[in-house]
Nucleic acid binder design. Sequence first.
DNA 1: CTAAATTAATCAAACGTTTGCGTGATATTT
DNA 2: AAATATCACGCAAACGTTTGATTAATTTAG
Lengths: 338, 338
Amino acid sequence: MQSKPTTIKEIAKILKISPSSVSRGLHDHPSIGAVTREKIKQLAKSLSYQPNNAAILFQKGKTYTIGVILPELSEHFFSTAISAIEDEALKKNYTVIFAQSHDNYEQEVKLVEKMKNQRVDGLLVSISKDTSNFDHFEKLNTFNIPVVFFDRIPPFKNVHYVACSLETATVKALNYLLKKGHRSIGMINGPATLFASEERKDGYIQAISFNRLKFDPSLIVNCDLTEKGTIEAANEFLNHKRKPTAIVAFNDYVALFLIKYFKKLNVINDFDIVSYANLPIISYIDNSPIASVEQYPYLQGQKAANILLDLMANPNPENQAFFNTIVESDLIVNEVNK
Amino acid sequence: MQSKPTTIKEIAKILKISPSSVSRGLHDHPSIGAVTREKIKQLAKSLSYQPNNAAILFQKGKTYTIGVILPELSEHFFSTAISAIEDEALKKNYTVIFAQSHDNYEQEVKLVEKMKNQRVDGLLVSISKDTSNFDHFEKLNTFNIPVVFFDRIPPFKNVHYVACSLETATVKALNYLLKKGHRSIGMINGPATLFASEERKDGYIQAISFNRLKFDPSLIVNCDLTEKGTIEAANEFLNHKRKPTAIVAFNDYVALFLIKYFKKLNVINDFDIVSYANLPIISYIDNSPIASVEQYPYLQGQKAANILLDLMANPNPENQAFFNTIVESDLIVNEVNK
DNA sequence: CTAAATTAATCAAACGTTTGCGTGATATTT
DNA sequence: AAATATCACGCAAACGTTTGATTAATTTAG
């Protein structure tokens, strides 16, 4: 017994009124009398009428869908962020579709195109590692599809974005280490192209100079964030003329590689390690980073989603104000090492 | 300068032919001549025509969308599975929308309803912890929306599902521990309502009796899978008259709680721990489980998606055959402890 | 008591695409 | 040369809903 969903037309026929009246009745349009309105609503309920979304979307030319493009869904940061995005979207009855760039620029370009074709009403993006050209997002402007970047953002201000200030976070991390007495602090930074790398570097320099210490550029090493790259960076520090006593790792994954390597070399106790991301797992490992920068992925996702929902609700015509939201990050000191 | 997407009508007008011919031309319909066809395709390309999806969906009464409902996106298992689902769906040009039940039955019911209203063509579901009633899925049958369950499946066979045989996985785990000489093995099981708990229990009993040992029911403790619940379960074992020397934890998260607690009590070396899930992170912690059951989330997601895509492609009328796919799970022995 | 305003509903178009049916024109078979 | 088949395309309806314009009936104002 195949059920076909009830339509407005059917309700109209039964009630011997026009489909438009039914539509208006269901939407509490003032031009429909209270009596008729109630009749309509009752019948709709008893026939368990559900509006045909596809028809509405088509009619309105909106999809009530927001697209999310991010590098890697299975990374804790992103799955948490998207979880927040989904929650926020649901509140406003929006649907979320997502796709992974797998940190590949070409894939990202394709996905932006696909999202545009899917006619998403708006887009949330965390850009891929090797994206340095942003033309594919420019194109969306012409189609009036708003874009909000989060966490991995382009290095300029004339876009909407939500991100952590990694610069101040890095200052916090450095100050924490300096207060502990460390005077030679290494930093495993990401690829120089990443804005996030720049911020970390700036924070490092800022903290060093604020404390009237001499900045040694060779203590900041760029790294491709792989295990191999991490080991290479580690070796640089081990052979450094001013061998650091503390290391700031680009993120918890790098920290894990580093810890694994240092354990193997049995030098793990020679270093205090501080990291970024604050993966929940970190607190379970021995010799874990003594502190990690919490970047609040859920909050970031939430804010980005809300900005986008706002932008879609009020399609701002000429008003070219850009929402640049900074989520304050915190240095979480690992309790075990307090 | 607002761009509006190109439509078939516009192409038709420029070429002075009918919209239907354009549509047919683009779809290589035989009744359109080769010359006209090429003209159409060229113009479409140069105007960068993109079919209006909403219109097509509406017209065809299909959405080319599959819904995914799962408990918690940020869990590694699920984010990996959904990553696979997305990849498979993309190949067949389907779009994925997803929602999280947050392990809440009422939420799950709502989401099923929402998915139905969104007119998804099919549904992939991993059920919530406290779902024991399945009427909300029954309803989908009447609307001819196929459902494939994966990993967290209902405890009966007359549905489509993909899952690991946790029973045989548990047998493997038990045998491994028995071979290592353990004679009293504790199990921290999940809530009794979960099918996965039942399977673990059955596997436990099966392995015990196969090895002609006496089964002691008090060595299997149900647990709500929280940290608190885990500690309670651990205490039962610590005070047990036949204190176990090995413990099978419901999953890696429970194992982490357990390890943390045992470390605190300084009894971590009294136990061998085996777990389920095989989180990548596990290999980085000290005193990690000596083995973990790999449940192949990517594979499960992939298979479930393909079954669903098949079901949607061939809407089987009377043919009530149910796809029950078992993914063989493996016991991964942690190399460090080999 | 007529004119204007309000109320309650209807009509018809529109959104973009697909598809069954029809129709001339040309080509092929008797 | 007449009958038939094939080709290439157009017509129009349909999918379900929304919405601006319109109408008819009733109420209010002047």
